[in-house]
Computed example of a mutant assay.
Amino acid sequence: MRKYLFGTGLIGAFTSGLSMLKAMREGEPFTWRTALAWLSWAITAALAVGAIVDIRRAGTGHLAPTDSPVAGHEKKYLKEHLEK
């Protein structure tokens, strides 16, 4: 579980979300740029969670979708999972 929680994608999404929350608390006006930043953060967080789901599924023997960065490497993740 630790390898999922401390993945670089989740850490990056978490820290960028914190910096945007800090800017909101300091009284920055909500503009279209702020809305795009929040949209970008949501997409980044969704992609990070999706990658974790794909790695988890590949580690249990399921095939990853073809658009996933894990696609084609399922045997590697299954082997790592079975070694534990």
Rank of each mutant, 00 (worst) to 15 (best):
A37Y: 03
E74V: 09
A46I: 15
P65G: 04
L47V: 15
I43E: 03
H62G: 03
P29G: 04
A48Q: 01
G72L: 05
H62N: 05
V49I: 15
F30L: 13
E83V: 13
L78P: 02
G50E: 00
F30W: 13
R57Q: 12
A51K: 10
A46Y: 08
P29C: 06
T44D: 00
R56E: 14
D67Q: 07
A58K: 05
K79G: 01
L36H: 06
P65E: 03
L78D: 01
R33S: 12
W38N: 03
T31W: 00
A51Y: 15
V70T: 11
P65A: 05
E80M: 10
I55R: 14
K76W: 14
G27A: 10
V53E: 01
V70N: 04
W32P: 01
G50K: 01
G27M: 09
I52A: 13
E26C: 07
I55G: 00
H81R: 14
A64P: 13
L36A: 12
K79M: 08
L39V: 07
T60Y: 04
R33M: 11
I52S: 05
E28Y: 08
W38G: 03
G50D: 01
P69V: 10
F30E: 05
E83A: 15
S68G: 06
V70L: 07
T60I: 09
L47F: 10
H62E: 14
G72I: 05
H81L: 01
P69Q: 03
E28H: 11
A35R: 10
A46D: 00
T31P: 00
K76H: 14
T34P: 01
E83R: 14
S40V: 10
L39Q: 04
E74D: 06
A42P: 02
A35E: 09
L82P: 00
E80Y: 09
E83T: 10
L47P: 00
W32G: 10
D67P: 03
H62D: 12
D54I: 02
W32N: 11
I52V: 14
D54C: 07
A46L: 11
L39W: 11
A71V: 04
A71K: 11
W38T: 04
G61Y: 09
A42F: 10
L63P: 01
L36Y: 06
L36W: 08
T44M: 06
W41N: 03
A42Q: 04
A45V: 14
R56V: 06
F30G: 02
E26R: 12
P29I: 15
V53D: 01
L63C: 07
V49R: 00
A37W: 04
K79N: 12
G72W: 12
G50F: 00
A71D: 08
